[in-house]
């Protein structure tokens, strides 16, 4: 299945959002959105992905 992760297309085996995070090596404190909709961390395990989904994975960063 092809998923767009932070703007980059990837071919992944994951079928849920939590599997995607594990497959892509994300283990720390991140927030997620799928197709521009926020998905809480507690909902990732049951959030099924579909081909072409756009996933944003954000982390703490410097800001003003």
């Amino acid at each position: 299945m092809k998923i767009i992760v932070n703007g980059d297309p990837r071919e992944v085996a994951a079928t849920t959002l939590s599997e995607l995070l594990a497959e892509c090596g994300y283990s720390g404190r991140v927030a997620t959105a799928v197709n521009e909709v926020f998905v809480a961390s507690s909902a990732r395990i049951r959030h099924a992905l579909a081909d072409g989904d756009r996933v944003e994975i954000l982390a703490p960063m410097q800001g003003g």
Partner: peptide, 21 residues
């Protein structure tokens, strides 16, 4: 301290920043 959110890269830069903050 004001902070932001940005795309996390493979290196996990956000995690060390979070610890420092």
């Amino acid at each position: 301290a004001t902070v932001s959110l940005r795309r996390e890269g493979a290196g996990g830069a956000g995690q060390s920043f979070w610890q420092m903050i």
